[in-house]
Amino acid sequence: MKRRVEPVYYLFLVPTLVLFTAFVVGPALVGIFYSFTDYIGVGTWSFIGLSNYLALFDDPAILQSYTFTLGFAAVTVIIAQVIALGLAVGLSSRIRFLASLRSVFVLPMVLSGIVVAYVFSFLFSNTLPAAATAIGFAPLEQSILGNPDLAWLSIVIVSAWQTIPGAMLVYIGGLTAIPADLYEVSALDGAGPWRQFRSITVPLISGFIVINTILGVKGYLGAYDVIVGLTGGGPGTSTRSVAVTIFGGFTGGDYAYQMTNATIFFVLTVLISIVQLIATRGRMVRL
């Protein structure tokens, strides 16, 4: 028997569709349109075909920003997922002060990125060097923010710190869904905690790992506020992400060119997400 869907349900979609189209799809299409022009944001413009695209692939600054962003996203997502999973396992076990501990670990999530970045920038430029000087630890006496080879680490640390709670909550939800008797049975069969983690926990939360990784990578690819607050893209151009470069084009009158950049970045982000989905499809275990 075919079930008819009550038409009123479609009505519920309308507000979202309208808002999404008006404020996301529409502007995005306009942006893609202008990437084929020489528009600077005001006045007249003309079509210049693929010139912006050709210029983009020949621009070392653009290529450098992609290398930085992709590398940063890859490193951060691994670090953040490992720590988030570890915390989730810890905070799902029977320990004292569980509720208050969970709240403490979730705190970073409620702070805005730019605030977090400014606080950490103070720590990195003042507190850390002062502490290192006090104990005579030479490598950290100069702030890592001023070191072109190390500044990226500060962005990894702060981004991970800020995004771990969200991932951790998802994992805690996943862990709660695993029936406790699985662990009891496996314990009777002689499985230790590590074996239980590998053979029960990880397979059963693999779906959550996929979701967290895809969302995480997507977020890190768009890194902007943390970078602006910590390094402003410096020292030199060592930490200029794609988003920082794109935004620079608006004040610089490079509107159409950076729209081209944004279009390519959009396609790349979608591709990465699809590849991640395909690579992990069929690996999820269901009970």
């Binding site: 072109p148 893209g233 151009t237």
Partner: peptide, 16 residues
Amino acid sequence: IPTSIPLGNYLQAAIG
């Protein structure tokens, strides 16, 4: 110099 050239960032590197 148009701001699409990150002059200040280049200077950071040069001073360093």
